[in-house]
Design a protein around this nucleic acid. Structure first.
Length: 320
DNA sequence: AAAGACCACAACCGCAGTCGC
DNA sequence: GGCGACTGCGGTTGTGGTCTT
């Protein structure tokens, strides 16, 4: 026994909407308001499924939709939110006025995921435990529901999620307690080398960092999240305009994204199922571990108090 | 100029959450 | 509490336009 179709499909039209259908739907909704999608097609004189009408209105006909390409700023927001929220397109869209979840989903699938996939590397012999720290504190997904939610409910949810998103976008910078042997055993480049070296070529940097999370949620005093594998091999490739970060990791779902600000600062995001770590640094000066760690920011979720107990890096510069 | 490949985006489909009866 | 109706969401597919050969 199959599922009952969402609406009677016999005789219903599928495929692209015509201008006349758009006009009819738009006029009906402007006159009668949204909702009652099941009965809407019949009342509006459309040979379409109610779901199709809803999609058409939400993704195309609504007056508050923003047209045009996704801007760099919007792309930045999408990358950051996706690193923390995953494929929760509607939630991501709620932070981009005038953009729909479908639009963002399409943009991600056709642009961003490919970019990121290009720089993603996997190490098949990894057995690291995946701890999705950032997502643990998120509210559960809400799906469906009959009728409209009360306005207060919606506002409260948007506000709560907005707070979370703001924290993700600008997390507090933790105080780093660096050990004295940060560059142990490896010769740093001289100041002259740094000054004279143009921001191009290849900088290979190896480092490790351990973060300890005080975790009351799991009833453990101290849950250690070892990021050694995550940051074992970070390679920076310089371009005229931006830096691209790649990361080799045993963590199955670690990913790296890049973002560029107008000021010329680059940002390396290490996201995915291992919390979210990012560091900003200027392209005007050569990249190094100190500047990366100095600008280190992360989002550990509101239920977690994150402290850096140990930070340890072995650095090597290989100028090509 | 034609054919095939590729890409972007619109639209569809099925699942799942919530509500009213 | 069970069930069906309704709706929102995310994955997937289809289609038209553009680019490449």
């Amino acid at each position: 026994m199959g599922r009952r179709p969402c609406c009677e499909k016999v005789g219903l039209k599928k495929g692209r909407w015509t201008a006349e259908e758009d006009d009819r739907l738009k006029k009906y909704i402007l006159a009668n308001g949204e909702g009652s999608w099941r009965s809407l097609p019949k009342n509006a004189g459309l040979l379409r499924c109610g779901k199709s009408c809803r999609l058409r209105w939400i993704n195309y006909l609504r007056a508050d939709l923003k047209r045009g390409n996704i801007t760099t700023e919007e792309e930045d927001v999408i990358i950051k939110l996706h690193a923390s929220l995953g494929n929760r397109w509607s939630l991501i869209a709620s932070h981009l006025p005038g953009r729909t979840d479908n639009e963002i989903k399409n943009y991600w699938n056709s642009h961003l995921s490919r970019q990121i996939q290009t720089f993603r590397r996997r190490n098949d012999d990894g057995d690291s435990v995946i701890v999705d720290v950032a997502r643990l504190s998120l509210p559960p997904r809400r799906k469906g529901g009959r009728g409209r939610r009360r306005k207060e409910e919606v506002e409260a949810e948007v506000e709560a999620e907005g707070e979370a998103a703001r924290e993700i976008l600008s997390p507090p910078t933790p105080e780093l307690e660096r050990e004295s042997t940060v560059c142990g055993g490896v010769d740093d480049p001289t100041e002259e080398e740094i000054i004279n070296k143009p921001p191009e070529g290849r900088h290979d940097v190896g480092g490790s960092l351990t973060l300890n999370y005080n975790n009351d949620v799991f009833g453990e005093d101290d849950m250690s999240l070892d990021l050694d594998e995550l940051l074992t091999n970070v390679e920076m490739e310089w371009d005229d305009d931006y830096a691209i970060g790649t990361c080799e990791s045993n963590t199955a779902d670690a990913s790296v994204a890049r973002a560029v600000s107008d000021a010329g600062a680059a940002e390396l995001d290490v996201g995915g199922d291992c919390s979210s770590i990012s560091s900003s640094f200027s392209l005007d000066s050569p990249w190094n571990w100190e500047s990366f760690a100095g600008g280190l920011e992360w989002d550990a979720g509101e239920d977690f108090a994150a402290t850096v107990a140990e930070s340890d890096a072995v650095i090597s510069w290989l100028f090509s």
